[in-house]
């Protein structure tokens, strides 16, 4: 008991500088943002009232939630397939899957966004190829719209969605799957009725992480959305840096942080932090 206590004190001491840094770099400035939201341009709840009535703000909020939801479904589904191969595939498949998961981490988000533009634009690889095989006559609009944003964001988030799933799949008792097959269940049926439900905590963790990350995306939607599908982070940026509307920008930020905080609380109720890495 004594050992764990002093271990904990030691860990706390080691963590202290980090905590101090986080407070100075994020919490303190954020308090300033909270203050602006109640004081600019005039003291009161005016900005929060505007937030509830401003149609532009509301449409951006709804779009953000919609995109985050779609990106979550796409990312978790793709990550699930990759993780199954990574955790349960043959040795060669495992190496390939691991490569697919790790490579995106080595390329910056900016590079990746421009990469997708090159692939998906009107004269990009995808459109030229589809035209050359005569599948389409006019180029498809794949970028500078919501579709492009969803593709780019999912691509970025899939590796993050993999880890909670991998941890759930690794802790699964192999014998339970054998038991299902021994009782007469086909591989397909065993996958859907036993394997997937048993990795439920991983799916929830993975979905919450993806969703929370999606809400704060800035670079990817700014580049791949081409100003036509503005998301909440970009809206905050526009309000604060390109118009004198600091109060409204601050109020949007506060709502976003509170919302994300609530989701994080939910996340930690379902998954232990160590399952996320």
């Amino acid at each position: 008991m004594r050992g764990t206590l002093s271990d904990r004190t030691g860990a706390a001491l080691l963590m202290a500088p980090l905590l101090l840094f986080l407070i100075l770099a994020y919490a303190w400035p954020f308090l300033g943002v909270v203050k602006w939201s109640f004081t600019l341009p005039t003291p009161g709840l005016g900005q929060y009232h505007a937030l509830l009535t401003d149609e532009l703000v509301q449409s951006v909020f709804i779009r953000t939630l919609r995109i985050a939801a779609i990106v979550t479904v796409v990312s978790v589904t793709a990550a699930y397939a990759i993780t199954v191969v990574w955790v349960r595939g043959s040795p060669v498949q495992r190496v390939l899957a691991e490569f697919c998961i790790l490579v995106p981490f080595w390329i910056s988000v900016l590079t990746r966004a421009f990469g997708w533009v090159a692939l998906l634009s009107n004269r990009g690889l995808v459109n030229t190829w589809l035209q050359s095989i005569g599948f389409i006559s006019e180029p498809l609009t794949l970028v500078r719209n919501e579709f492009g944003v969803i593709v780019g964001m999912s691509h970025f988030l899939i590796p993050f969605a993999v880890f909670p799933l991998a941890s759930a799949m690794r802790s699964l008792d192999e014998r339970v799957l054998l038991a299902a097959r021994g009782l007469g269940s086909s591989r397909m049926r065993t996958f859907w009725t036993v394997f997937v439900p048993m990795t439920r905590s991983g799916i929830i963790g993975s979905a919450l992480i993806t969703f929370v990350f999606s809400l704060g995306f800035f670079v990817t939607p700014a580049i791949l959305g081409g100003g036509r599908s503005v998301m909440i982070a970009e809206l905050i940026y526009l309000r604060i840096f390109q118009s004198p509307d600091w109060g409204l920008g601050a109020a949007i930020s506060v709502v976003l942080v509170v919302f994300v905080g609530a989701l994080m609380a939910l996340l930690f109720r379902y998954v232990k932090p160590k399952q996320l890495v």
Binding site: D173, V176, L178, A179, R181, G182, G184, S186
Partner: peptide
Amino acid sequence: RPAEQRAAGMVFQGYALFPH
């Protein structure tokens, strides 16, 4: 013959019940 077609009942060490 694959396991799912053999129709042998099996009780595993540690039971291997479906936890969900």
